[in-house]
Lab assay of single mutants.
Amino acid sequence: TEIRININGVTIHVRDASEELKKLIEHLLRLGADEKEIREVLHRWEK
């Protein structure tokens, strides 16, 4: 699944996002995570 996240005008594009990762990101956004925090989570997730 491919997702695009727009945070304050900055688009983060994620290829091959699992449903689990998608739910995690949606949850973090609801909690008010910023772009830097989302990128950090994505970076750690890929490892």
Rank of each mutant, 00 (worst) to 15 (best):
S18N: 10
D34P: 09
E19D: 15
K23N: 14
I3W: 01
K47R: 13
R15K: 15
E40N: 08
G32I: 01
I25S: 00
I12V: 06
R30W: 13
E35L: 14
R4T: 13
H27I: 07
W45Y: 12
D16E: 14
V14I: 12
A33E: 02
N8P: 03
S18G: 09
E26Y: 06
T1V: 14
T11G: 11
L31W: 07
K23A: 14
A33N: 03
E26W: 04
D16K: 11
I7D: 03
I12Q: 01
H13S: 13
E37D: 11
K22T: 15
D16W: 07
A33Q: 03
K47E: 14
T11R: 07
L42R: 01
E19I: 07
L24E: 13
I7W: 00
E2W: 00
K23M: 13
V41Q: 12
H43M: 08
T1Y: 06
T1L: 14
E40Y: 02
L31K: 13
G9P: 02
A17F: 06
E19W: 07
E37G: 08
R44N: 14
N6H: 15
R15M: 15
I25W: 01
L31Q: 14
E35V: 12
H43D: 12
K22Q: 13
I25L: 14
I12K: 01
H13N: 09
R39N: 14
L29E: 06
E37S: 13
R30S: 15
I12E: 02
E40Q: 05
W45C: 15
R39A: 05
L42V: 14
K23Y: 11
E19T: 10
A17R: 03
I12R: 01
R15V: 15
N6P: 07
I3Y: 01
L21I: 07
V10T: 15
K47C: 11
R15D: 12
K36D: 11
R4A: 14
E20F: 05
G9D: 12
H27K: 10
L28M: 15
H13K: 08
H43R: 11
W45L: 09
R4G: 08
E2M: 03
E20T: 10
I38S: 00
E37A: 15
H27L: 11
D34L: 06
V14E: 02
L31R: 12
K23W: 10
L28N: 03
L42K: 01
E37N: 08
L29K: 04
I7N: 06
I3P: 03
L24G: 02
V41F: 12
N6I: 12
A17Q: 05
K36N: 10
R39G: 04
H27Q: 11
A33H: 04
E26I: 08
T1D: 11
H13M: 08
K22W: 09
A17D: 05
R44E: 15
A33V: 12
T1E: 12
L24W: 07
E19H: 10
E20S: 09
T1S: 11
I3C: 03
I5S: 02
R39I: 09
I25M: 07
K23E: 10
R4N: 12
R30E: 13
N6Y: 02
I12S: 03
E35C: 06
E26T: 08
D16N: 13
E40H: 06
D34V: 05
E20A: 11
E19C: 06
H13T: 12
K23S: 12
S18Q: 10
R15T: 14
R4F: 13
K36V: 13
I5T: 03
G32K: 05
V14Y: 04
A17H: 05
D16H: 15
H43P: 03
E19P: 13
R44P: 03
K23L: 15
I38W: 03
E37K: 13
E35K: 02
L29G: 03
K22V: 14
L31S: 13
L42Y: 00
K36W: 11
I5E: 02
D34F: 03
R44Q: 15
E35N: 04
I7A: 09
N8M: 04
L29H: 06
R39H: 15
H43E: 15
E40A: 07
I7Q: 05
I7C: 05
S18Y: 04
R15G: 10
E46T: 13
E26G: 03
I7T: 06
L29D: 02
I5H: 02
L21K: 03
L42N: 00
R44F: 12
R4S: 15
V41S: 07
K22M: 15
W45S: 05
R4I: 13
L21M: 06
I5C: 04
T11D: 08
L21T: 03
E37T: 15
E2P: 10
E20C: 06
H43L: 07
L31C: 06
I12T: 01
L24H: 09
D16G: 15
I7V: 13
E35S: 08
L24S: 06
A17M: 08
L24P: 00
L42I: 14
L28V: 04
K23V: 14
V41I: 09
V10Q: 10
E26M: 08
I38N: 00
I25G: 00
R30D: 13
E2R: 05
E20Q: 10
E26Q: 08
V41L: 14
T11W: 01
E40C: 05
H27C: 13
I3F: 02
L28I: 06
L21Q: 03
V10M: 07
K47T: 14
E26F: 08
D34T: 15
L24F: 13
R39Y: 08
I25Q: 00
E46Q: 15
G32T: 01
V10C: 05
L24D: 05
E46F: 08
S18W: 04
K36H: 11
V14Q: 04
V14C: 04
D34W: 02
G9W: 01
I25Y: 01
R15P: 15
W45M: 08
N8C: 04
L42E: 01
I3E: 05
L42F: 01
V10S: 09
V41C: 04
D34R: 05
N8F: 01
L28K: 07
I38C: 01
D34Y: 03
H27V: 07
E37I: 12
E20P: 06
E20R: 04
E26H: 10
L21H: 01
E35H: 08
L24R: 11
E26K: 07
E19Y: 06
N6D: 13
L31H: 14
H13E: 09
D16R: 07
G32E: 04
L29I: 15
G32Q: 03
E26A: 09
R39K: 10
L21Y: 02
V10Y: 00
E19L: 12
S18C: 04
K23P: 01
G9C: 03
G9L: 06
N8S: 09
R44G: 14
V10R: 08
V41M: 12
A33D: 01
S18E: 07
